[in-house]
């Protein structure tokens, strides 16, 4: 049901620039702490537990969220631009769903 994750990346930068990247994805991040109102049982945890950003195949950041990350997880971080290329973002959740998106950065 979730549509494309949102990422904010500058379209171009100079080599050596440190740019800010923001990402937001729609996900319930079921923490595993909530109880089912009817049964009283804890609703099993189902969260995004991996977020990796790579640029032209090289790792930028690799985050391991836990249940305490809010729903619709937001991440902001920086990258040093080595060249023109593609920023690839991958989110994985505990159910095995994978969400990805790619943004290109030009030099200029």
């Amino acid at each position: 049901m979730a549509s494309k994750p949102r990422v904010k990346v500058p379209k171009s930068a100079a080599v050596g620039d440190v740019i800010t990247i923001k990402t937001l994805i729609n996900h319930k991040m079921e923490s595993g702490q909530r109880k089912d109102k009817k049964t009283g049982e804890k609703i099993p945890q189902q969260i995004i537990d991996s977020f990796v950003a790579t640029f032209n195949g090289t790792e930028v950041v690799n985050f391991t969220p836990a249940g305490a990350i809010s729903a619709n997880p937001f991440f902001e971080f920086t990258m040093k631009v080595p060249a023109a290329g593609d920023l690839h973002f991958v989110w994985k959740d505990q159910k095995g769903d994978v969400f990805e998106t790619t943004k290109s950065i030009a030099i200029g």
């Binding site: 049901m1 549509s3 949102r6 923001k22 619709n72 937001f74």
Partner: peptide, 11 residues
């Protein structure tokens, strides 16, 4: 972008 509500607007 930072407004988490906008992710639903995207939907």
């Amino acid at each position: 972008f930072e407004n988490p509500g906008m992710v639903f607007v995207d939907h």
